[in-house]
Each structure stands twice: as structure tokens, then as C-alpha cells.
């Protein structure tokens, strides 16, 4: 556990927790502007969270502790990921957890907790959301793992720090076909995993089309705040992961204040830019029918497989 890792382990979660609602705010603002609206301002998600924390918590009758623990677990998984993944520093506070598989599995664990909470309520919407979320997860997971496989094969490790450092040392790798294919596959997967258009519409209120929202219909107050925070954190984590896996430059490799400031700024800029692009892209898209989503995911799975093939045959 190096000093760099400890610093990163403290700075990263703070940055992610503080920044991710702002990222959502930025994205909403971008979208509003492109739609010709004024928008609620970048700080609106934070206002929402502050208000939700002040509200009453409601336990729907007949739900168990699964329902109550799920939001905590959901945020906790994102938090652990925020601690261990090299966002600001290449070293990790808990290096043996900074493994790509572990990170992917942790994020999946959060999704599972939420799906179980949806089922726990026993409402039709909860079940529907859980069912759809699990379907998407079941299809996303393979793509994610295979894309990761493509990236880690050349490095010979699934440790995120190792992958990021190796890209830093060998920039040409980013432009290799394997890398590009994997990047495209990962983008599709991230869109699906974070519930953005065209897979899920984060601002929909139409029950029959929603996925994420259907699972959390019963949550209120602080529980809901946690869930909103977690979904914002997951978005930033995924975008940060994407940014640092393919464009790791700027990340701090030494524990000097200057390097750390650069690292923080670089992450903010990269994630912010990705967020803006994602939000702008959403303006041009309509939501896919649920049963068209697998086709999209199958396509990305194929890309990921191609990436693996490329990483072997073109290496």
C-alpha cells in the first residue's frame, strides 16, 4: 500500500461522490440546452439529494431487510470501486481488489441488490424492473468481461493499475485495432449498464418502458437519495473507467501535490467531456424497444470477441 495509493484512495471517493451529481447536472443541462430549454442548473442534482435526505423514510408493508439494505449496498459497491480503481492515481489503496473482474462483479452486485429490492416489494413494477435489469445485466456481463479480456491479454494482468500503467508506457497501444474494438464494445456496454438512451430512458415516467425507475418506485427520502447518488456514481465510475483504460494521460504516477492536482483535473475534464458527448448523443436517439436491446448488446459482444481475436492475431 503506497503513499500514492492511500492518497488516491482518499481523493477518488471524495471526488466521485462530490462530482458525480454535478456530472448528472451537467449532462441534464447540456440536454436542456440542445432541446432549447433553459435547464435547472448544474447543481440541481445536489439540491435534489439534499432535499431527499431531509425527507421521511418509508417502509412499504411486507418488505424485508433486503429492501432496506439494498440502497446502502448499492452505494457501498460504487464507493469501493471508487476507492480502488485508478482514477486519479495509478496506485490503488487496496491493490488486490483493483482487479477488473472484481470491479465488474462489484458493480453487478449493486445491480443485483437493487433488483432484489424491486422483487422484495412484490409489486408488478418492481418485478418487471428487476426482470428487465437482470436480462440486460446477463447480456452485458459477457461483453464486459470479453472486452476486458482483450485489454488484459496484452498486459498479462487484469489488475487495473497494471493496465493503465502499461498504456501510459506504450501510447501506441491505444490505436491498435484490439483497443479500438474493445473501446466501442465497452461504450455500448456502459450505455446499457448505466441505463442511458437508447437502452433505458433516465427521464422516463412511463411505467411500461422503464427499467431502472421501475425497481425504485417504492423508495422515498434518504433511501432514494442513496439510490440517486449511486446511479450518478456508477455513471461517473464507468465513464472514468472508460477514460482511464483508453486515455490514461494525466493520471498521477507520483504522490506530489502537483501531480495529484493534474490527476484530479484530468479526470474531471475527461469524465466531463465524455458526459457531455453522451448527453449530446442522447438528444439524437430514441429509446429502443426492450427486445431490440439484446441485438445491440449482441453486436457489442461480437465486437468484443473481435477485439480478443485481434489482440491475439495482430499482437
Amino acid at each position: 500500500m503506497s503513499a500514492l495509493g492511500v492518497v488516491g484512495g482518499i481523493a477518488q471517493p471524495v471526488l466521485i461522490v462530490a462530482g458525480s451529481p454535478l456530472l448528472v447536472g451537467v449532462m441534464r443541462q447540456v440536454r436542456a440546452r440542445l432541446e432549447g430549454r433553459a435547464g435547472a442548473g448544474v447543481r440541481q442534482p445536489w439540491r435534489d439529494l439534499r432535499k431527499l435526505l431531509r425527507k421521511e423514510t418509508i417502509t412499504p408493508r411486507g418488505t424485508s431487510e433486503v429492501f432496506r439494505i439494498a440502497p446502502l449496498l448499492l452505494v457501498a459497491t460504487s464507493l469501493v470501486v471508487a476507492v480502488v480503481v485508478p482514477f486519479v492515481t495509478t496506485d490503488s489503496a487496496i491493490d488486490p481488489v483493483a482487479d477488473l473482474f472484481a470491479v465488474v462483479a462489484l458493480l453487478a452486485l449493486g445491480a443485483v441488490a437493487l433488483a432484489l429490492a424491486g422483487l422484495d416489494t412484490g409489486t408488478a413494477f418492481g418485478g418487471m424492473g428487476a426482470s428487465r435489469e437482470m436480462t440486460i445485466l446477463a447480456l452485458v456481463e459477457p461483453t464486459l468481461l470479453v472486452a476486458i479480456f482483450a485489454l488484459s491479454v496484452r498486459v498479462g494482468s487484469t489488475n487495473l493499475g497494471a493496465i493503465v500503467s502499461s498504456t501510459l508506457h506504450d501510447p501506441a497501444r491505444v490505436l491498435s485495432p484490439a483497443s479500438l474494438l474493445a473501446a466501442v464494445a465497452l461504450i455500448v456496454v456502459i450505455v446499457a449498464e448505466t441505463g442511458r438512451l437508447p437502452v433505458d430512458n433516465p427521464s422516463t415516467h412511463l411505467e411500461l418502458t422503464m427499467v431502472h425507475e421501475a425497481m425504485v418506485l417504492e423508495y422515498a427520502g434518504p433511501d432514494l437519495a442513496l439510490i440517486e447518488l449511486a446511479s450518478a456514481m456508477r455513471l461517473s465510475v464507468f465513464l472514468g473507467l472508460l477514460a482511464n483504460l483508453f486515455l490514461p494521460w494525466g493520471i498521477a504516477t507520483a504522490a506530489t501535490p502537483a501531480a495529484l492536482v493534474v490527476g484530479v483535473l484530468a479526470l474531471v475534464v475527461k469524465v466531463g467531456l465524455l458526459g457531455v458527448v453522451l448527453a449530446a448523443g442522447e438528444v439524437f436517439l430514441a429509446k429502443l424497444r426492450l427486445f431490440r436491446v439484446p441485438e445491440l448488446l449482441a453486436g457489442s459482444f461480437l465486437l468484443a470477441l473481435l477485439a480478443v481475436a485481434a489482440s491475439y492475431f495482430l499482437a
Binding site: A40, I58, H205, L206, E207, M210, E213, L217, E218, Y219, A220, L224
Partner: peptide
């Protein structure tokens, strides 16, 4: 903002 559930 309009929301779907009274809980929210």
C-alpha cells in the same frame, strides 16, 4: 420535476 411515483 414531474415524477412517476408519489414516493419520489
Amino acid at each position: 420535476r414531474l415524477v412517476a411515483s408519489p414516493r419520489h
